[in-house]
């Protein structure tokens, strides 16, 4: 039997027994937005645990590709909620990231970056719920270990200088494209539902249904990492594609995983409802509802109520 030699991963080292305790059942897969986006098992949380073990044991070289595996994470913690062994996966990832950063292997991951048009107003620094943004030698910088890619900096930046490095399908343009495609390909389509990752616990996500089962769908759900990241341009896009209404699901008061993303979303939607009213569109066509994490029953009930209301209103004329 081989005894494996360890390399120096001083932050990761303390998780050695945890890496053994993970029974590698894979129950974390279905909940991972990264797996949902790439479809590659090697991007899913279990693979990150396996990668961490490989790095710690010295079986896997600490390369850029290996580092990317660890850095590409939204910190939604769905994997932890689903873990049958009670492993705090994101804490393991954070310590692995610390070691990798010290080795100069900073992966781009899902972190926020700042472009040339930054006015250094520090609004994003103040708004960041994870204290990941700071004024460094090169202007506004992001700590890649602390950043959890909620995207609130993007929403608050008045200059459009803050960007998420890799959206992995959850960015504004991705969601506009996908929701437009749904509205244009489903004759019975009425509504688009934008849900934060905690409000909606996706059921069917890996497999594809036959056309006969989906052609009469009247709504589609799209998930992003935080309601605080929703922008007015994204919420208005479905109306331009003949949607009857848009529903937003956010965490209840004081339950936002990114401190105040939910309240930001609610304020913005209130403002947009006023705008809709001014152009003679019923503001009830844009609604925000509070869904506690994983409450599928309430989520479905809110969608059904919203669709009923839209049916009574009819299409926008």
């Amino acid at each position: 039997m081989e005894t494996k030699e360890k390399t120096r991963f001083k932050h990761l080292e303390k998780w050695e027994s945890t890496l053994s305790a993970c029974i590698r059942c894979g129950y974390c897969f279905e909940h991972c937005p990264m797996f949902k986006y790439t479809g590659w098992e090697s991007d899913a949380p279990r693979a990150k645990i396996i990668t961490a073990f490989g790095l710690l044991s010295g079986e896997l070289e600490p390369t850029k590709m290996a580092a990317d595996k660890i850095f590409n994470c939204f910190y939604c913690k769905r994997c932890e909620a689903a873990c049958s062994s009670g492993v705090t996966l994101t804490e393991v990832f954070t310590d692995a990231k610390k070691d990798l950063v010290e080795m100069g292997l900073k992966g781009p991951g899902t972190t926020s970056v700042t472009y040339m048009n930054c006015a250094r107003c520090l609004v994003c620094v103040k708004a960041c719920p994870h204290e990941a943004r700071f004024h460094g030698e090169d202007g506004i910088e992001t700590d890649p270990v602390k950043c959890q890619a909620c995207g609130i900096c993007v929403e608050v930046c008045p200059a459009g200088a803050a960007k998420i490095e890799n959206n992995f399908g959850t960015g504004r343009e991705d969601l506009i494209t996908e929701s437009s495609r749904f509205l244009s390909t489903h004759t019975s389509a009425k509504a688009i539902v934008f849900a934060c990752n905690w409000s909606y616990f996706p059921d069917l996500q890996a497999s594809r249904l036959p056309e006969s089962e989906t052609h009469d769908k009247d709504y589609e759900i799209y998930v992003n990492m935080c309601a605080g990241r929703l922008e007015s341009q994204l919420l208005m896009a479905p109306f331009l594609n003949k949607a009857w209404g848009v529903l937003v699901a956010a965490c209840p008061e004081d339950e936002c995983q990114h401190k105040n993303g939910n309240t930001r979303a609610k304020k913005m939607i209130q403002g947009m409802q006023s705008t809709l009213e001014r152009v003679n569109i019923d503001p009830a066509r844009l609604q925000v509802v509070e869904i506690p994490a994983g409450d599928k029953t309430l989520f479905q009930a809110e969608i059904d109520t919203f669709i009923d209301r839209l049916n009574s209103m009819g299409p926008i004329r």
């Binding site: 894979g26 590659w40 090697s42 396996i50 079986e59 896997l60 390369t63 590709m65």
Partner: peptide
């Protein structure tokens, strides 16, 4: 996929075993 970081992850399942594939 042929990068070692991907191959390493595909070398495991839910068992006690591990071995490297050549490609996925």
């Amino acid at each position: 996929k042929t990068d070692p970081s991907d191959l390493y992850a595909f070398g495991s399942d839910s068992s006690v075993h591990h071995a490297m594939p050549w490609a996925v």
